[in-house]
Design a protein around this nucleic acid. Structure first.
Length: 211
DNA sequence: GCGACAG
DNA sequence: ATCTTGTCGC
C-alpha cells in the first residue's frame, strides 16, 4: 500500500467514526494496546485487558511480527494496526473500550489510530497520546484538570492532567464515546502514574517479548 | 517557501 | 519507536 492509498483509506473510513456517547456503554473491561520495536524490523503487538474498576489484569495477548509500513506522521495506524488486530483476535475477553497509544480525532484528517481501530473492530475506543497534535494551554496542576486541545480551529481533544504536577496526556475520542467520557475513563485507569495502566502494561508486555 | 509532524 | 523506569531536587 502506498502512502497515497493509505490517505484514501482514511478518507473512506472517516465518515464511519461515531464520536458520540453510547448511553448503554458500561466499561467493565478496558484494553490497552501498544506496539514495541526491536533494533531490527521485529515488533511485538500487545494487548492487556484490565478490570476497569480493580485494575486487575484479566487477559493478555501478544503477536510477534515485522514492520510492513514505515512510520509516517498521519499514517501511524498503517504501521501498528495490522499486528494489533491480530493480537485482539487472540483475546478471550472482549473489551468494552480500547485505549490506544496515539491520537484519535486529534489527527490532520481526524482519523488517528484510535478512530481506525474503533471503526474496524466496532468497539468503543479512545486515544491517549504522550505528545499533542494541536495547541493547548497548560491545565491546572491538580489531577483531573484539563484544557482543550485545538487544531485547525476546532477542539479535537483534551490535555488531561492524570497526576498532580506532571505533564498532561492528550486524550481524543476514537469511536463510540464522547470526550467527557473518554477523559473520565482514562483518569480512572491512571492509578499511580502519568499513563493509564492499560498502556503501561501493554508496553511492558510487548517489550518483554522482544528480549 | 519553511517548519512541524502520534509512534 | 529505541536508549533502563520513575522520581526527586536544583
Amino acid at each position: 500500500m502506498t502512502p497515497e492509498e493509505a490517505v484514501a483509506e482514511q478518507e473512506r473510513l472517516r465518515p464511519l467514526v461515531r464520536p458520540v456517547a453510547d448511553p448503554d456503554l458500561d466499561v467493565r473491561y478496558a484494553a490497552g494496546l501498544d506496539v514495541g520495536y526491536a533494533a531490527d524490523d521485529r515488533l511485538a503487538a500487545a494487548v492487556v485487558v484490565l478490570d476497569a474498576t480493580t485494575l486487575e489484569t484479566v487477559d493478555t495477548a501478544v503477536v510477534l511480527g515485522r514492520a510492513e509500513f514505515p512510520y509516517l506522521p498521519g499514517l501511524f495506524a498503517f504501521r501498528e494496526l495490522p499486528p494489533l488486530l491480530r493480537a485482539l483476535e487472540r483475546l478471550d475477553v472482549t473489551p468494552d473500550l480500547l485505549v490506544c497509544d496515539g491520537q484519535g480525532l486529534a489527527h490532520p484528517r481526524r482519523f488517528g489510530l484510535a478512530c481506525h481501530l474503533g471503526v474496524v473492530t466496532g468497539l468503543p475506543s479512545v486515544g491517549v497520546a504522550k505528545t499533542p497534535m494541536g495547541r493547548f494551554d497548560p491545565p491546572g496542576p491538580e489531577r483531573g484538570a484539563s484544557t482543550d486541545l485545538v487544531d485547525g480551529g476546532e477542539v479535537v481533544g483534551r490535555a488531561l492532567r492524570t497526576r498532580a504536577g506532571v505533564k498532561p496526556v492528550f486524550v481524543s475520542v476514537g469511536h463510540l464515546v464522547d470526550l467527557d467520557r473518554a477523559c473520565a475513563e482514562v483518569l480512572r485507569l491512571c492509578a499511580d502514574f502519568r499513563l493509564p495502566e492499560t498502556t503501561r502494561r501493554a508496553d511492558a508486555l510487548g517489550r518483554r517479548q522482544l528480549e
